Computed example of a mutant assay.
Amino acid sequence: MKKPKIKTHLKKSSQILRKKGKAPGTVTYTGLRENALSVVSVIDYDENKFIVEKPKTIEEINFFKNSKLTTWIDVTGISDESYIDDLGKLLGLNSLVLEDAVNTQQRPKIDEYDDYIFGVFKMLYLNDKQEIVYEHLAITLFESSVVVFQELKDDVFNGVRERIKTKSGRIRTRGADYLFFALLDAVVDNYFEILEGINHKIEELEEEVYDNPRPEVAQRIQELKKEVLKIRRYIFPVKELVSRLVDSESKLISKDTKLFLRDIHDHCIEINESLQIYREMSMSLMEMYMSNMSNKMNEVMKVLTIMASIFIPLTFIAGVYGMNFDKIPELHWEHGYAMVWGVMIVTFIGMLIYFKRKNWL
């Protein structure tokens, strides 16, 4: 069970070391999803038009970027460093931006430039096995377009795509800044689903800790603590980043869109508060486990002590009449054996009654 985790950790470390010694701005993919072909899809729309395209060349992508319509350029697969480098240069992205776009270890951030706003986030969602998928996501807002770099085809944007298809939707009547908001909102809203899963795990572990604390439960608690800390690392900074967008003086974000961004900010506050609670609960679970294990051990020791206390006088009686002396009067009594048994039984029952009245049993 542990060997794959060790191999994955070593592979992850080796990927990070690839950046060592390289000049700043060098496009270097640091994730584990290597050899993924970069696939670009474009959604071009306004209030009356809706176009979906699969550009075959970088030049076509640049054409859509400069379209008069609102454009969503979605780049799936970021391990092809040369392709990402060429695409970024054609789109006019800074080399440092391209470096962060493929650096999966980059913490969430927002950078504002004259012509665009660049953001790095972590897209978290559950796969078919109900396991959390951590996907690197980079979003760039231009005047009339949004460029998204993501590692996998799976994402949390299906709802946004459906809203764009609907002609009566609000998103069709607004610009690229609202599309940027809608994508970020989808990412943040999905954090609630992740937190719901964490809450469910905590409730399950609480029941197991109370009912049947086992070493396997302690291991699951440790895994949960690590998972909560990892989630917190990626989600916690988002509140501050959204706050920066709300206070931004960039001409790329309108006042109307900032009102919607404030709604994301409120969600981020709620998420961070929940995260803090779950972090404290996950840490207290181990204390509860240790306490219950100690109580369980105390109960065992209590039973053993009572059993030993009961048998001490019985052992004494048996020891006295087990001595090899000839002149022990009771040994020659006709009913001596039965009398000793009677004394031992009465002593046993008397001690049980005494312990019961003391609530020790």
Rank of each mutant, 00 (worst) to 15 (best):
V188S: 14
V188A: 14
N190D: 14
F192L: 15
E193I: 13
I194P: 10
L195N: 11
L195G: 10
E196F: 09
E196V: 06
G197F: 08
G197E: 14
N199W: 00
N199F: 05
K201S: 13
I202H: 03
E204Q: 12
L205P: 07
L205N: 05
E206G: 01
E206P: 00
E207A: 14
E207F: 04
E207W: 00
E208V: 02
E208L: 05
Y210K: 13
Y210G: 05
Y210P: 04
D211I: 03
D211N: 11
N212Y: 01
E216C: 01
A218P: 00
R220W: 00
E223K: 11
L224P: 03
L224C: 01
K225S: 08
E227W: 01
E227M: 01
V228L: 00
K230W: 06
I231F: 04
R232K: 15
R233Y: 07
Y234N: 11
I235P: 02
I235W: 00
P237A: 03
V238W: 08
V238C: 04
K239S: 06
K239F: 07
K239P: 06
E240W: 06
V242F: 09
S243Q: 13
L245W: 10
D247V: 09
S248K: 08
E249H: 12
E249P: 05
E249D: 15
E249C: 05
S250P: 07
L252C: 11
I253E: 07
S254F: 12
S254G: 14
